[in-house]
């Protein structure tokens, strides 16, 4: 029964969701909102589990002085600081000017932006590897990327300004993006759509069971 009941619920809800997409009449029209609301409620309750788990693992690490336990201590201190300040400030904790808002604006946002900024360096290192002309495909990629990058900046059109309108780098870049790139991306999207249908059918029909441990 431990497997049968989840499979039965999945099958019924899955078929119900397929049907509701084609029926605009109540109660089918409310199904999506109901389930979305329930998902949010369950998710909100589950965040407590997540937070408790984070604290449990961090406290265990500090108590047993495991390797790098100092980072765990920082997690605990930060967690307690933000939770206590948020609770002390009550329901207006997000109003500009509060201590919580200060922490958010001047600690969280800069830290987040710093992580995002690292992306610029990683793009450079990954591009260097991807664009090395090792074989025919990589060379093709390099040439296409060169034209697209040059076509996206003003200097591209300055260099090719003497050429007819349609042959300038900006037009060439647009052509690469609008035709070969769009065609390839749509082919991937069609495959993804079919993959989702197939996966959903396997889950709804109970053929795919690995998420509940597999087996018959």
């Amino acid at each position: 029964m431990r497997r049968e009941i989840p499979l039965l619920i999945t099958g019924i809800v899955g078929v119900g969701f397929v049907i509701q997409y084609f029926i605009p009449h109540a109660p089918f029209s409310y199904m999506s909102d109901w389930f979305s609301d329930w998902f949010s409620i369950i998710g909100a309750c589950a965040i407590v589990l997540g937070a408790l788990n984070l604290m449990k693992i961090s406290i265990q690490k500090v108590i047993s002085r495991k390797k790098d336990w100092g980072y765990a201590a920082v997690i605990i201190a930060s967690f307690l600081l933000i939770v206590i300040i948020g609770m002390v400030e009550g329901k207006d904790f997000r109003v500009p000017g509060t201590n919580f808002d200060w922490l958010y604006r001047y600690m969280y946002i800069p830290l987040s932006a710093t992580m995002f900024a690292i992306l610029a360096f990683f793009v450079a290192s990954a591009s260097y590897r991807a664009f090395r002309a090792r074989n025919f495909e990589a060379t093709l990629l390099l040439i296409a990327a060169f034209f697209v990058m040059m076509g996206r900046v003003p200097v591209g059109d300055i260099i090719t300004g003497f050429m007819p309108e349609g042959w300038r780098l900006s037009n060439l870049a647009s052509w690469v993006m609008n035709y070969p790139q769009a065609a390839g991306q749509r082919a991937i999207m069609i495959g993804i759509g079919l993959g989702i249908v197939s996966t959903s059918l396997r889950v709804i029909l109970g053929i795919e069971r690995s998420h509940i441990g597999g087996g018959e």
Binding site: M189, G191, I192, G195, I196, T199, E208
Partner: peptide
Amino acid sequence: GEELFAAS
């Protein structure tokens, strides 16, 4: 894309 869904 689809290979992710085919994997299992």
